[in-house]
Design a protein around this nucleic acid. Structure first.
Lengths: 348, 348
DNA sequence: TTGAAAGCGCTAACAC
DNA sequence: GTGTTAGCGCTTTCAA
């Protein structure tokens, strides 16, 4: 039997709220005693505890969280800041976070910070105003450095997921994007014709920078060459991928392999290949990144790198949870495993 | 200049919180005056207001939301209850909700209720315990009827998105699933060979039931026949689609068209077609439902029905917001437009 | 036009 | 073991 105040909840009484005073009155004791009994505090008479539990159950007492939070100065809610939950990458991370948080009795505020993170500080501020116990960032950029430092100074626990900033003394969870990108670069360099293009994400993202660096290192391992400079950086969207691919095929007709910063960009590239009648992987090989759920679909079979997104969310919450509990070990930079998935859009 | 307490926020002061008392002390007035001045209440001297605003800004005063909420007995947070945010359908709905809520200064708690909604009552209860201003349901089932009635009796505003229950006097937002399914059924009946199978969602879902009904009505309009009874109902997942498709091809080798309850099921069907070497749409035509973002991808081109998911979320929030504001018009059943998207997985 | 005071519902010292 | 009390930070009568 847990003592978190939910075990004896009366389902028939979700909305007609009863205060602790009424429970106390019913039992004929002080509110303090009720509070103590309910909290499982040792040093409460067995008989009293029994009567309190009974009365609470009968009356359908459910403690008012807002009042608890004001009194304790701390909430059991955390803020998850992401660009847009419509992006399946973040949705999967969010799923991991919410699942883990729910198990620990925490609620999760999901806030949009915009594709460029332009609302990051606003969203973080709004969370602090409501005394969120901690923050989970998924898309920090250099401009957020002052914000993160202020959070550290203020003692606000937070964890950086996926992207992270150098010089920030806080926990982070990610994969080794450079290494993963290198693997995929090597794969293409060894199997392709040698004219490789890179269509990456935005340069402000540490993840995108690392992936592009890895691509370049990997590609350099064979006799391949990187054919494009312009168009390397861009949005992590299908539209951006399509636009840049169309431009690429115009300016570099001999490109035979395209390394994409994520699966959405790759999808846009495949759209254009379809339109232009280019066969994949014979005319052009295409590799994505992240291995979103649909990428392995029969008709798609996109070569990609599997990123454990839900696990990333879960680990992020677990670290944050420990920090909220006062854990004061040095910052942890957790690296999760990734896996190259070679499928039908590249030659093996 | 808005008066919502954020316009004069001092960015450098996110974490070192200052109370209203300190602002009052700085100006040399009562906290009541500060509260009045900040709330934009008429009847506050222009000079005082000016001084208060100035002091608040200098001190970086940010009102404690938890205290406000306790005092007012109402929060500016809403709960969004969904099966799992990893499902892209719900992620898109959530995106619409969060976008609209943010514009109105609301925060959104996202709660998982489980694939079968088994945690629905728990999640709703948790929201009420924190005085959420209202609830957004996305996957109600018959078992939730008592819960919804209790919410109505308790005066808790809520809106049913996507799925809804008969006999619940509350707002809802959805598309006309039966009509949309009928259209797609007709399309297949007129273009297929006539042996149609239906792989729908779970029977507890009003959406799934309506879609299956529409499929049947539409298919009956041609000379087609529905070949399967078993396997009609199942989970809305790719795995379920693959499992049921494999079984279907074994028991009904002559099936030439498959109507799926959603795009994820269709993806599983396509996986199996690929494995078994069945060409789409020649050997078998496949139609999905929802038109998830990837369904239109070049190599996929899945015939589907476009559902305005983000709009559904946005409208849901807008209705809820009005109800929270005391709007007491009769319940609204809002029907959003849908659109049949005929693509390469079916013959036209 | 401003201030004093009460109190939202709860918990944690501190006393008994 | 149990009760008394004092607030958490804010808003809102009510009185001046």
């Amino acid at each position: 039997m847990s003592t978190d105040g939910r075990a004896w909840v009366n389902e028939s009484n979700l909305t007609t709220r009863v205060t602790i005073h009424e429970v106390a009155a019913r039992v004929g004791v002080s509110t303090a005693s009720v509070s103590y009994a309910l909290s499982g505090r040792p040093g409460v008479g067995a008989e009293l505890r029994e009567k309190v539990l009974q009365a609470a159950k009968e009356l359908g007492y459910r403690p008012n969280k807002v009042a608890q939070q004001l009194r304790r100065g701390k909430t059991d809610a955390i803020g998850l800041l992401l660009a847009d939950i419509a992006n399946p990458f973040y949705a999967d991370v969010a799923s991991g976070v919410i699942g883990a948080a729910t198990r620990e009795g925490f609620e999760v505020f999901v806030s949009h910070v915009g594709v460029d993170g332009e609302r990051q500080a606003d969203a973080a501020g709004a969370q602090l105003d409501r005394n969120s116990a901690g923050l989970l960032f998924t898309s920090v950029a250099a401009r957020d450095l002052p914000l993160l430092h202020r959070l550290i100074n203020g003692g606000v626990p937070f964890v950086q997921l996926h992207r992270s900033l150098d010089g920030v003394a806080a926990d982070s969870v990610a994969i080794d994007n450079t290494a993963a990108a290198r693997e995929i670069g090597v794969h293409l360099a060894l199997s392709g014709q040698g004219n490789i293009a890179i269509l990456g994400g935005p340069e402000v993202s540490s993840v995108s920078r690392n992936r592009v660096r890895g691509f370049r290192e990997g590609a350099a391992s064979g006799k391949a060459q990187i054919v494009n400079v312009e168009g390397t950086w861009g949005a992590l969207t299908r539209e951006s991928g399509a636009r840049r691919a169309a431009e690429l095929f115009r300016t570099h007709p001999h490109v035979d392999s395209i390394l994409c910063g994520n699966d959405l960009i790759a999808l846009g590239v495949l759209d254009v290949c379809e339109e232009l009648g280019k066969t994949v992987p014979n005319d052009v090989a295409v590799a994505g990144f992240d291995d979103l759920s649909f990428s392995s679909a029969g008709p798609l079979k996109l070569t990609s790198v599997e990123v454990p997104r839900a696990l990333m969310g879960r680990r992020g919450f677990e670290l944050l949870h420990r920090r909220i509990g006062g854990w004061d070990a040095p910052p942890v930079q957790e690296i999760l495993p990734h896996q190259l998935k070679i499928r039908a859009t590249t030659r093996s």
